[in-house]
């Protein structure tokens, strides 16, 4: 049995994205991929993930070097910029906005966690010699962040097992940078429910992270 039939596409996306990253599928329109993923078409989720992953990273890198200094690197900006870009490229229909945000949040999470993991690995023996010294300094000063991000990711996995909806709200809000309103639309619930879920999710995460 495929995991994709038993789990929601959002949850399925979360399973070891590195496996799927090498899949060099020719670019299919994101809209089509979303539709296919929603219909549980085999491998559609993987392809969608792959496409979004690359796109999000591309946007992130592009922003990083804009004017030689980092512009806003928040997930909100990246996800929205990616959305705009895909719509402009006619890869995505405006009407798929809701679904896109849902998937993009999941992918964004992977992007962030992967970056943090990579950096943790680097810190434990990676080659940093050719990096400007102040960057190294700054990166090493802020290193606990990476641990946190990875821990949050792990906690979120556990939360998803108990309260999938709460986990999804956290994913969209924290990793996807979506607004309460966007989340409410994407999940088809009221904003108040999202706010309540968000509060409860933060509470449970606080309990888990301090345990």
């Amino acid at each position: 049995m495929s995991m994709h039939t038993s789990l929601s596409p959002q949850v399925a996306l979360r399973f070891d994205p590195s496996q799927h990253r090498q899949c060099m599928t020719p670019i299919t329109s994101v809209t089509e991929l979303i539709k296919a993923a929603d219909n549980n078409v085999p491998r559609a989720v993987n392809k969608l993930f792959d496409v979004l992953y690359k796109d999000l990273r591309r946007v992130a890198n592009a922003r990083l070097h804009a004017n030689g200094r980092a512009a806003d690197m928040s997930p909100t900006v990246l996800v929205h910029e990616t959305y705009e870009r895909l719509v402009q490229l006619q890869e995505l229909r405006v009407s798929d906005r809701k679904q896109f945000f849902t998937y993009a949040s999941t992918v964004m999470r992977s992007v962030i966690v992967d970056m943090a993991r990579a950096r943790l690995a680097d810190r434990r023996g990676g080659g940093v010699a050719d990096i400007p010294i102040n960057t190294v300094l700054e990166a090493s000063l802020a290193s606990p962040l990476d641990d946190s991000v990875v821990q949050i990711n792990d906690a979120l996995e556990q939360l998803a097992a108990v309260e999938p909806r709460l986990a999804q709200v956290v994913e969209m809000r924290y990793f996807g940078g979506l607004s309460m309103q966007e989340i409410a639309e994407a999940m088809d619930v009221t904003e108040r429910t999202v706010a309540r879920d968000w509060t409860k999710a933060r509470s449970l995460l606080a309990a888990m992270l301090s345990a």
């Binding site: 990083l64 928040s74 970056m115 943090a116 990579a118 950096r119 960057t135």
Partner: peptide, 9 residues
């Protein structure tokens, strides 16, 4: 976290 990760990359 993201910015730093991206900087490093």
């Amino acid at each position: 976290a993201m910015r730093e990760a991206a900087v490093l990359a």
